[in-house]
Amino acid sequence: MKRNPFFLVIILILAISSPVYSNPQVPSNLLNLAWSAENQVSFVGVENTGIYLDGHREFNVSRVYAMVPNKFRREYIYPPELAGDVLIDDGNQRYYYQVKRRKVIIKPTLFSPEQKQLQEKQLQLIYKNYNITQSQSRFLNRDITKIVISDKEEKKPILALWIDNETYTILKRELYSPDGKVRQYSFYVEIKFNPTLNNSLFIWQKPSELLTTIEQKGETIIPLQEAQKRYPEIATIPSMINNEYECLGVREVPNGIVLQFSDGIKSFLVFNINPIPPLPPMATEKSVSGKKVFYWKVDDIDGIAWSYKNKNFLAIGQLEKNIIERLIEDIK
């Protein structure tokens, strides 16, 4: 039978307009686009962000403004103790003004090349350590792709992202506990893209009632190898722990330094500080790899403190038993 060319053209048009063809982004590409869209789209929205602690929810609501390139503002509306607080990122620095305390904390921008590098590193770790699946859905009357990042072995969802198909903005996020319950979340209650925004929204103006200014210059992240030359007490700590968690860098903190470990989503921090602050009353003494440590757990956050050769260490985060053992072994 002779094929009708008109029929073939129809098939071709249908194939091109089908969802599979029109949305060719594989999950990893989509994640890359979503990560880099953060400072590439202007919008105004109202966001609800929360965390479940000890079985109940703590959350805040804020109005968010984003302007291309690299400008961000958040105005807190709820709860009452945060209402009136403002965060401004002007692309160079971040100003967090706490109105009731009449205090401003100034930190480097989150749009710096160092932060971008950190994000890229986290993405690489996500691809390495997790499974990524996607599905199409609707959120806030917009077409979105829902990305679910799951544990490779147990296939448990760890993080879910609702990504806008048109702008790649992440409209909703959910982070899950090991038992599968939502641990942290954030979502836009409303969002409007490409609004007309006044540049003055993103300029920090010192209020007359300001009492305290804290500049946190020590936010700069030092690569592990460089930090190990400066601080010999952390020289034996490897860059990878259990082939999953990688040290993303070292930062200065009050009374010492902190090493930041992440597997892309889960994380823990190792502090080398002097002195160790008073530990919570529930801290109990344990022996790990023949070493005396103090361990406690508050909600989902584990903590251990130990000393080695007059140096004090404190680890805080999601600390599985094998991570604790490895850390103590390595620092020996």
């Binding site: 966001e47 962000t49 965390i51 805040n60 804020s62 961000f72 958040r74 807190y76 945060l82 607080d85 965060l87 990122d89 971040r94 967090y96 904390i105 989150l110 994000q119 986290q122 993080l159 996020r173 982070l175 942290q184 979340y185 954030s186 989503i265 889960k266 994380s267 985060g317 999601q318």
Partner: peptide, 11 residues
């Protein structure tokens, strides 16, 4: 740890 959720949300 809040990078994925509470980034730019010090509150």
């Amino acid at each position: 740890t809040g990078t994925h959720i509470s980034k730019n949300n010090p509150g």
